[in-house]
Design a binder for these strands. Sequence first.
DNA 1: TTTATCCATTGAAATGTTTCTATCTTTTCC
DNA 2: GGAAAAGATAGAAACATTTCAATGGATAAA
Lengths: 94, 94
Amino acid sequence: MAQMDTKTAEKISKALSDPTRLKILSEIKKKHDWLYCVDLYDNINLAQPSICHHLKQLTETAIILPEKEGRNIKYTMNNEVIDDFIGFLQGLKK
Amino acid sequence: MAQMDTKTAEKISKALSDPTRLKILSEIKKKHDWLYCVDLYDNINLAQPSICHHLKQLTETAIILPEKEGRNIKYTMNNEVIDDFIGFLQGLKK
DNA sequence: TTTATCCATTGAAATGTTTCTATCTTTTCC
DNA sequence: GGAAAAGATAGAAACATTTCAATGGATAAA
């Protein structure tokens, strides 16, 4: 498991520190691991560019991984990043 | 282990999403688990009220625990909160 | 009891984040 | 090719966070 540096941990924390983005992650979980954007428009009461903005933050930190499917994009959780972040948190403990 | 709710996870993420606050946590680790404020004034190049502001965010989320010692306050990591947060993150994974 | 020290609070400036409308790009389907 | 659909981008308004100088409150030391 890769040792995560502080700057990366900071960015991941920031990406997780918003209710909309946590909601997106729980929707991915709910949809059994592949989420389409259209699922979010139904469940999140924000304009399309706002949702796009949040998805960007989650993909930039690689917490979720995008996959193009024609005109659509679907997303899945990236367990590896979560595990690395957990490793970082373990390292904070006494 | 307590199941952490989304709102709490959001607040903890926010508390962790700042370089100064991560630095404070690493100083606690470095000082072998009990950190005095004065150690921070030496190591962090910010005015006293700014450091105080960051410590407040970390104590409000209970990531660190304060203990009064006369005129001083010392801090220690709260492993329980970290573990609960890790549990929340595990729950996000597919 | 006076003074010094440690930390907290207030209020304001600078900066960063979230959200929207409008518009653009890319891809699909006719 | 032209129209429609799915996302992305730009720019601006609203809101939140970070930082500081100034000041206040509590405890310890003299």
